[in-house]
Simulated scan of single mutants.
Amino acid sequence: MITRIAIVTGASSGIGQSAAVQIARRGAGVILTYQGNRSGAKDTVARIEQEGGTAVALPLDVGRSETFADFRDTVAATLRDTWQRDTFDHLVNNAGSSGMAPFAETTEDMFDTLMRVLLKGPYFLTQTLLPLLADAGTIVNVASSAATFNGMEPGYSAYGTMKGGLLTLTRYLAKELSPRGIRVNAVSPGSTRTRLADNAFERYPEVIPGLAARTALGRLGEPDDIGTAVAALCGTDLAWITAQDIEVSGGFNL
């Protein structure tokens, strides 16, 4: 039986780590990427292997598109050596960064950094890996409720703009790749307990009760809330869904 293979970017912690583990639990091998947090990536691999799965961690900076061709070559070699495959089946564009500033104080450096990581990176990484993506495969882009009316908060104009662009890209990819049977969707998390913004929720736990009070289901999101949604979109149960953005926020600002 041919094993399905997923690539999950930014899987050394948080949503990416959860997505990698959840996808592996559903029977897929996983190539996961990390930048800087090598120990976290090793932990993700260990968690997958402890449950009988197979995973390989590769370094990748999604903000440096000039490295993508070499990364594709490394992926191709990993597919051959680990799974005897020439293609993979699922791409999860999760790796990201965060930045907050009022619109009037947003600098070009901040804007450009977010653009490279959150929009240009997924755009051209997907383009670079496309020859290796199998027909009838799936792409899941991790966007944000910051790009939706429900999730808009002051200070996130640049971040939300990039995530909004990612949602537009999701729809275009779904249209252009449909002749190959490739489904493309996005998930938009609400406030979720991750390491983004330099572990903001650990440093400022006092903000959590207020966010929970504004959430219909009464709590902050956890990485597994999002990771399971990503894994479901990669599976066959939701095979008639494409070009959609699914907000996974527990009903924030509902």
Rank of each mutant, 00 (worst) to 15 (best):
I48T: 13
N253A: 14
M152N: 12
M100G: 10
T44R: 06
W240G: 03
T161C: 01
A6I: 02
D237F: 08
V21S: 13
A46I: 09
A229I: 10
T106Q: 12
I241T: 15
I246K: 06
D198H: 08
Y172K: 09
S18H: 08
R26Q: 15
V187M: 02
A19W: 07
A20P: 10
N253E: 05
T126G: 13
E49Y: 06
A158I: 01
T168C: 12
R219A: 08
V187A: 03
R219F: 13
T33E: 05
G210D: 01
E51S: 14
A239M: 06
G221M: 10
G121T: 04
S191T: 12
I246G: 05
T215I: 02
P131T: 02
L167C: 02
D61Q: 06
M115I: 09
V30E: 06
L173Y: 09
G121Y: 10
R203W: 01
A213V: 00
R219W: 12
I23Y: 11
A146Q: 08
A174Q: 02
V140D: 09
F111G: 07
E153N: 10
T138N: 13
Q22F: 07
A69T: 13
G63C: 04
A212E: 10
L169P: 01
P154W: 00
V207F: 08
D109W: 03
A197T: 03
A69H: 11
I31M: 06
Y172W: 12
M100I: 14
L125A: 07
T3F: 04
G250I: 08
D89E: 07
D43E: 15
P102E: 02
S188Q: 10
S188L: 05
N93E: 00
K120P: 06
T44G: 11
G16D: 09
R214G: 03
A134N: 09
L60K: 05
L196N: 08
A19C: 11
